[in-house]
Amino acid sequence: MTDTPWLKTRLKVAEQAATCLADEYPGADVWLVGALAEGLVHQRSDVDLLLITPEPVAGPGSRLIHGIRVDVRAVSRSTVHDWRTLLEEFTVTRDDIQMFRAVRARLSDLTLLRTARPLAQAPDRSAVLEPEQQTTYQRWALADRCEAAASLAEDLLGLAQAGLYPHADLVWDQLARVVAQAETVAAGAALLGEKWLPSLLSSNDAPFTPVPALPEPRWVSAAAHSPFFASVQARLADALLELWPTDAEPEPVDEAGLSGFGWLPQRYGDGWFLRRGDDRVPLSDGRMRAWQQAAARRAHS
């Protein structure tokens, strides 16, 4: 956490609110969640708390403490158990992605669980998830960002083909943020929102880092010749290989056109594939390494 007066004040408010909630709801636990739990705060930040009760209760809502808004969400222990169950294993496969849809719909809840820190007289202030569960969260979150990137790439292809270049520029900027999110997730960040990206991208040498811009696009020739898109391909492949490393020897990728505009990598529980729109081409570990190396060369050429 970055130690600032804003952070100190809000942590004290969180402690005070948690103590009151523990008295109001006997047997309940109180967790600090969201950006504040990750040490990310500004002068007007609210405090987000998760109240975990033995049985479902009516939510206590919001309250003001020393002029700071405290938002409290109440969930039952059985609900938290259901969230944890989703983090037991990264189970999505190419033939059955219903679980992926279910997890994507609950990803904001899982993010709360990933950021949660106990409050109110709890002896242990560490994260509430085991390291294995944190890794599974990373994989779900990264798969989600790759899915978002693939959807944007499909839009870009359609917009470029239709000559709607100003619209494509807007989507291109959005894709830059999604790629940056994928990189922060691969590096261990718990948050997925765009607001804190400059802080999540930062190192110890700087308080924040601007979101890296993608290369200048050339929409007129995008469908036929698009080396500028290789930067997206290479960066997403690198992020995926952070969580699914392989030392397999590179193997030739024979399918023609898989390096072209719109093709992006994804990793499910049953292996690698490249996707463009509804087209999906499975890859072995070795072929994925070869594709990633080729994308990196194109991006730096």
Rank of each mutant, 00 (worst) to 15 (best):
277 G>S: 09
279 D>S: 13
31 W>G: 01
81 H>W: 13
75 V>H: 04
87 L>M: 04
232 V>M: 08
251 E>W: 10
54 P>A: 09
7 L>W: 13
270 D>C: 03
262 G>N: 06
190 A>H: 11
13 V>E: 06
268 Y>M: 04
197 L>A: 03
229 F>G: 00
256 A>W: 14
115 T>Q: 08
233 Q>S: 10
28 A>M: 00
54 P>E: 03
296 A>W: 13
40 L>C: 03
209 T>V: 05
212 P>W: 06
31 W>T: 00
193 G>Y: 12
115 T>I: 06
258 L>K: 03
104 R>A: 14
194 E>I: 05
230 A>N: 07
114 R>A: 05
95 D>L: 05
293 Q>M: 15
183 E>V: 00
159 L>Y: 14
185 V>Y: 04
97 I>D: 15
83 W>G: 01
116 A>R: 03
220 V>F: 14
137 Y>I: 01
151 S>N: 11
238 D>Y: 14
10 R>D: 06
141 A>I: 02
127 A>K: 10
200 L>P: 02
22 A>E: 06
53 T>H: 07
209 T>A: 07
217 P>F: 05
26 P>N: 05
286 G>K: 11
227 P>I: 07
161 Q>E: 15
121 Q>I: 01
156 L>F: 12
189 A>K: 08
216 E>R: 05
184 T>C: 13
25 Y>W: 14
288 M>N: 03
147 E>V: 07
52 I>Y: 04
7 L>I: 04
68 I>L: 09
237 A>Y: 07
32 L>H: 11
107 L>N: 05
261 F>P: 01
103 V>K: 02
25 Y>R: 03
215 P>D: 07
180 A>E: 01
75 V>E: 10
77 R>H: 06
245 P>C: 08
235 R>G: 00
202 S>F: 10
13 V>L: 05
147 E>H: 14
148 A>W: 10
244 W>C: 03
154 E>L: 14
55 E>A: 11
169 D>W: 08
119 L>W: 08
301 S>Y: 14
87 L>S: 01
114 R>Y: 10
91 T>M: 02
167 H>K: 08
13 V>R: 02
12 K>C: 12
293 Q>A: 15
79 T>E: 00
106 R>E: 12
59 G>N: 07
